[in-house]
Amino acid sequence: MIKLTVNGKKRAFCGPPFKRLIDVLREDFRLTGAKEGCGEGECGACAVLVEGQAVNSCLIPVCQMDGRKIETIEALGTVQKLHPLQEAFIEEGGAQCGICTPGMLMTACAWLRSHRAPKHSLRAHGARPLLKYGRGTYRSPQDIRRVLAGNLCRCTGYQPIVNSVVRAMKRHRTPK
């Protein structure tokens, strides 16, 4: 039996240990937010967070998730209370068909929560303009492109997606 925590709830999985995480989430736990785009690690539509880090759930056999904490798009926000990133994606038109959106949001969310670079180090890389985000830390729109490079979108176009993340960062200057 494999025990894992999904969106704060303890769950157990008794099926074949080599079943992929994406299939366990979608078929056994009925969490259908993460999508299978390519099944090859290329598109990021299946991205979820494991211990806070973005990973492709199509490349993980569930046995490797024993004892791990998993977060999926289902826990990011609710219709009543959207996550700042979700709000921003709606306002900026960062989603069309929505297949890539759960992966985009989870990857961006992990990045916003993670350690942020101090201003001087970004300046050194010539990354400008800088967005203040969190306490005394800064990020640049180029960073957003880099962090979302493994998330492909076939409809929206990447500019509105980058704009959405920028908007979320401008409005909420601290990570959620």
């Binding site: 690690g41 990021g44 992990a110």
Partner: peptide
């Protein structure tokens, strides 16, 4: 790869 590949 990209971030998700580097994490694994």
């Amino acid at each position: 790869g990209a971030a998700a590949i580097q994490n694994r």
